[in-house]
Amino acid sequence: MKLSPAGFAVTLGLVGFCILALTTPGFISSDGARAILLSAAVVGTLAVGQAIVMISGNLFSLSLASSAAASGMAFMASLRLGIEVAAAVAIAAGVLLNAAQGAAVGLWRANPIIVTIAAAGLIEGAAISLSHGKVLYAPRAEHGQDFLTSVVGGIPVAVIIFLAVTICAQLYMRRTRTGREIYLLGDSREGARAGGLAEAALTVKAFSVAGALAGVAGILLATETQSAQVSLVGTNTYDAIAAALIGGNAVFGGRGSPVRAAIGAVAIAAITDLALVRGYSTGLQIAVKGTLVVLAVVIVRLADSSAKTA
């Protein structure tokens, strides 16, 4: 198998990482692995959503984490109605908030970065206003909420949910008509148009699915901290995009996959935990993340241009 310069760099990186990991005490233990997966669950779910937006050729969404926080708050606020209802509310909120953005981008070709930045501000502002700035806590008599924080077969439920949504998203993108058409749309918008594909509808669907995933992420966030407020957004906006890019998704659309984004999230979580265990500062972690993003983008671009003949 030929090894392109890109492949070589990646292999070198992986080898370096493994050496670092193996020589760090406390990293390779089931506890360590569990911790990694747990922190990857939320970012990973969001990253899968970002991947779908990227694949559709619409760059990325800067409001996905904000809508996740909003979904988390909606989840908390509706828990007294039962966990199923609360989950449905959270996911529905995510879908609606993002479908609207998808409509602006798909129907009117508005710039996705601008629309999602604005939406982030709107969503966060609205969330604070509606909650009167207070933190939402789970009601005393929680209904089945315990389940979400429990552990099944040694794996936290949150992680199981993350892996499950990743698989579902992957199947959706590869095996359904909509998913495959989203790939085509991202590869060539004009080609999709001339071929009779429904560009606007596909964009709205892509954003809606990402929104649903944000809803799930919001639920995971809320149950993790047993509370919900806007600050849940934290660094998730950039972390999710970084995860998707590092996993190998291309920002120019038409290729990549949800699984790659999930792998990117796990990789980031592993690096973060490794850095934590080794005592590296937050700043270094973030800087390393950024460097990896740039590297990944460059590698993906080089690999793409060598595959495409003139």
Partner: peptide
């Protein structure tokens, strides 16, 4: 975007 992260990280480090 990567630059944003790198610079933010550098700020935290400094």
């Amino acid at each position: 975007l990567g630059g944003y992260l790198i610079l933010s990280g550098l700020t935290y480090i400094l």
